[in-house]
Design a protein around this nucleic acid. Structure first.
Length: 646
RNA sequence: GUCCCCAUCGUCUAGUCAGGUCUAGGACACCAGCCUUUCAAGCUGGCGACACGGGUUCGAAUCCCGUUGGGGAUACCA
């Protein structure tokens, strides 16, 4: 278009006359903005409002749709779009056509930073806060801190991945710390499984329980003395106090539901006890906990890298227990002390921790330390109606499940990386290196992403197809589960049932499959309605879930016990299990099959069978869990559902 | 209940900070067609969203307020 002196080209006038001033502005805006501030927009036949965009004085260049901008750019784009097929590989694309129009603009105009920022929240963050940007010369140190209380959880992998990527991106260090301060629930087996799972994923840590470093030990149960000392310090300064209330007293208070308790969850009865008397009572061996003395008024302002300033009234924060009566610290004390001592610079953890941030901040303050930067990641969600946080009730959440079901670590990691951070206009298949390279902590989306199995399968399929030739695939299968050891375990189970070698395939298929499809009409238990069968299967799932080691004779023992408790003969009892596990009424021996499948696959199939039978609603499940726990068969149920990590 | 966080296709997301190029882009799923000895893969196309209501503005997915919805926390669990 040819630049023309103002008053407007005919083109412009025509638009004005039909009352489409906005459209005209749109067309003009790109060139106008640099030179104009505000003016009376006389030609407008619509409302004669103040118009900031049109040129003030006639004769200015504002009406000129300058050389090639921006209308033309838009036209170009429109023309181009149809040919820009969505499946062109990233490599075929230029930087410019790989990104969004907006980003393209950024790329084109070097005066703007090319990093897109997210969300109004982040806008607020910029405006309202000047978060702590502490000594930036310090090398980045981050950590993932799983608690070894169950299966290696996808959430742990997710946190680990983002911490890992951040550390690598900034040439920093990534620490693995085991938060085993829950004496009842923690186990060494679980810890080992978690390490193995993270190793399988390829997320190597620089320091950890198995990888000595300057801040060892990396297992909190081995640092008890450190926490005790810090608790003493807090006690001495009055930042903490001893509370001699019994659990029963607290429970009773809560039950009575006094208003004052609503906020803080317990009375602060011992808050003002004379410290010396308290110390005496403690010395005399009276059982007590140590609590943090939280201010009763004022506001705590916290900063989150993604959310900016967050405010919370101190009166709403409880006097957190720091040291339990068994002398173990709670998460809150341990994580603050360790993060400081281990020189963690950025705490990247799950959103579930936001509400305890005030306490953590207070601890840093009272200990006289500078807090790290906090970044709370959204929680992975279930694919159900209300998108609750990812739980194994609805989804397989164990990393081991995905491994045994035949997913590749690259695919799982890749997929996890897509949760919250995306390359929306590029190829979504990307390696860990590529992920790290493009990693931008501040660009994470805040909406809790649903863990979509279907998309994971698609990604996994691409890895399988694209990254292996025939020989490679064979090697992969061998290293997965078609190894001699596994086959030799299966052989004795199959042999008696084999009439020809040709039977092998069908006979053993269920030992390698992810899920099987048991016919509902075969999922029966003598004298039981389908719902009762579902209940039985659910209880077996719970029982199996905590069983370590997961071997045939242990499984046998545990199931026989459960059968007795429920008043069934083992023979009857196992019938729906066969069907649920193998998909058929007759198959390889149950307990051995379960052992070969492993805990995760076994559980997944039991759960799938429960769903096939119509499922159990939340209420029924709750009731059932009570009944189950009354059987006293060890912990289990959904209580051990989540595996938080800090 | 209370507090905190969040809000674009069914799902993952781009765009939001610095409002105009958004007729809202991509991917998964779904549907159809092509290719093909079947199926898958691949290719092409289709369906499909700015939660709602106010405000600011010439102009709002974008800024502000409110509502609604969802999540998290409310433990001597993490």
């Amino acid at each position: 278009m040819e630049p023309q002196a103002v008053g407007g080209s005919r083109h412009d006038e025509r638009r004005f006359l039909v009352g489409r001033c906005e459209a005209t502005y749109n067309m003009l805006w790109g060139t106008v903005n640099a030179t104009t501030t505000s003016c009376k927009h006389l030609q407008c036949l619509g409302e004669p409002k103040e118009c900031r965009l049109a040129p003030r004085e006639p004769g200015l260049g504002g009406y000129l749709p300058g050389p090639g901008r921006p209308q033309q750019a838009a036209d170009d784009r429109r023309r181009v779009r149809p040919q820009e097929t969505r499946t062109r590989r990233a490599a075929d694309r230029t930087m410019a056509d790989r990104c969004s129009p907006r980003t393209r603009r950024r790329v084109a105009s070097p005066d703007r930073p090319a990093t897109p920022k997210k969300n109004q929240a982040r806008a607020r963050a910029r405006r309202e806060t000047a978060p702590v940007s502490d000594d930036r010369e310090k090398p980045v140190r981050v950590r993932v801190a799983p608690s070894p209380t169950g299966d290696p959880h996808l959430g742990t992998a997710y946190q680990a991945l983002f911490n890992y990527a951040f550390a690598r991106r900034h040439g920093g260090q990534f620490v693995l710390r085991i938060e085993d301060t829950d004496r009842q629930r923690s186990s060494r087996e679980s810890e080992e499984e978690i390490l193995a799972a993270l190793r399988w994923l390829g997320l190597a840590w620089d320091e950890g329980p198995d990888q000595d470093g300057p801040h060892a030990p990396y297992r909190q149960s081995e640092r008890l003395e450190i926490y005790r000392e810090h608790a003493e310090r807090l006690l001495a300064s009055g930042a903490a106090y001893r509370d001699f209330s019994t659990r029963e007293e607290i429970a009773r208070e809560r039950e009575s539901g006094q208003d004052a308790l609503d906020y803080v969850g317990h009375s602060r009865r011992h808050r003002d006890l004379d410290p010396e008397e308290a110390a005496r009572r403690a010395a005399a061996g009276e059982e007590h906990v140590v609590r943090l003395r939280v201010p009763t008024d004022g506001v705590c302002t916290m900063h989150d890298v993604l959310r900016g300033a967050i405010e919370r009234e101190w009166s709403l924060v409880d006097d957190q227990v720091l040291l339990k009566s068994d002398g173990f610290p709670t998460y809150h004390l341990a994580n603050v002390v360790d993060d400081h001592l281990m020189e963690i610079t950025h705490v990247i953890r799950g959103e579930e921790w936001i509400s305890s941030l005030p306490k953590h901040l207070l601890l840093y303050e009272k200990l006289g330390w500078q807090p790290p930067l906090f970044c709370h990641l959204p929680l992975l969600r279930n694919d159900d109606a209300n998108r609750s946080k990812l739980s194994k009730r609805r989804n397989p959440t164990s990393i081991d499940y995905y491994r045994r079901a035949g997913y590749l670590p690259e695919a799982l990691l890749n997929f996890l990386g897509l949760m919250g951070l995306s390359r929306a206009d590029g190829d979504e298949k990307l390696s860990l290196e590529e992920f790290v390279e493009g990693f931008d902590l501040e660009a994470i989306s805040l909406g809790g992403p649903v863990f979509d199995q279907k998309k994971l399968r698609w990604l996994n399929a691409r890895y399988l197809r694209e990254d292996f030739d025939a020989a490679g695939l064979v090697r992969l299968l061998r290293s997965w589960r078609l190894d001699d050891t596994t086959l030799e375990r299966i052989a004795p189970l199959a042999q008696p049932r084999l009439e020809t070698l040709g039977d092998w395939g069908e006979l053993t298929a269920h030992l390698f499959a992810d899920l099987v499809e048991p016919p509902v009409e075969e999922l029966t238990l003598e004298g039981c309605e389908p719902e009762q069968v579902a209940e039985v299967l659910q209880m077996v799932a719970w029982r199996v879930d905590t069983l370590r080691p997961f071997v045939a004779d242990r499984i046998h023992g545990v199931l026989r016990e459960l059968a007795e408790q429920l008043g069934f003969k083992l023979r009857q009892f196992t019938r729906p299990l066969y069907v649920a596990i193998s998909g058929k009424p007759a198959s390889t021996p149950l307990f051995d099959t379960m052992e070969i499948l492993g805990r995760d696959l076994t559980r997944a199939r039991l759960r799938a069978a429960v769903e096939r039978l119509g499922g159990l609603g939340a209420k029924k499940l709750k009731k059932l869990e009570k009944r189950y726990q009354a059987l006293g068969g060890g912990s289990g149920g959904e209580g051990s559902d989540d595996d938080g990590d800090g």
